[in-house]
Design a protein around this nucleic acid. Sequence first.
DNA 1: CTCATTTGACCTTC
DNA 2: GAAGGTCAAATGAG
Length: 326
Amino acid sequence: METTHPWPEGPSTTRNKVIKELVEGRDFATQLKSILHKPLEITRDHASPSPSPHELVSKILRSFTETLSVLASSCESGEVIHQNLAVSHADSHCDDPRSDDSGESRKRPTPKDRRGCYKRRKTTQTWTTVSRTTDDDHAWRKYGQKEILNAKHPRSYFRCTRKYDQGCRATKQVQRMEEDPQMYQITYIGIHTCKDTLKAPQIIMEPDPWETYIVSNPPDTMWGNGKQADHDQALSSSTTPKIKQESKEEALSDLTDNLSSLGTDNNNSYLWTDFKDFDLVESAIMSPKLGSDNGDVVSTMYSCTETASHGLDLCHFDGDFNFDDI
DNA sequence: CTCATTTGACCTTC
DNA sequence: GAAGGTCAAATGAG
């Protein structure tokens, strides 16, 4: 991983804020870790001033969210965050077909008119998860389904429902796995730029089992409501707001990338030490044994790939994931 | 009536 | 030309 300079011209406040948020997140994660190591004490000791796991998770998520916001705004303001975050060249005037539909009939334009109106987003970041549920924290709208060569099951195509009102470009592809038809391979393409993602911390406080959502959801997006959905229905109906992982996932990817270049001192190395531990804890939590009482346990294997030519090769978010490996 | 899904056609990429 | 990705009219559900 090469180290470029994500903060081109000394936006030190941005940098500091990102660092601050991450350090906070780390502290909360550390607290959470200690709580997880002795959960009984927590449940017993109600007078304890230490925050509950839910609170900690919320804080951690807030920290990430803040960081993401800063990074996103940095991007928009012209700063380049090294990775090609959705710098899709498909972003053109044709992107919103309804915006220029000035009262004219919605008939299909002639083929010539539509030429070049969409492109495969080769340069957007993609990552894949394997899950029993297609749920996540965003509302998706299915826009297509396609039989895939050598695949037993068709692939479903979803876009963010905010595509038109907020210009969110996130899409995902869902394909049932051949080996295990109960599992879905979900490929996320592009970042959610809609606001939905960031309201999540309010949802997380729902009184649902801690285990449930940590098992059902990616480790970095524990703000889902843990709601289980019928799998087939999940494929055919994508209307319910679901657990989200995109931005977080990317954030981690981005941040790990960027953090390596954030400082020239050694301070950053410790930054991830606890995250590695946290990852271990979480992979333990995510083990099917612990969540086996939940019929919809998700064994999740993450991988994020960048399809751009200069991309990250591959980073796995399974139990063996190690930030130092990046 | 509004919004989501279905599905065949169209488009891009390889 | 084949395969995969997207569009949008038709249709259905709430």
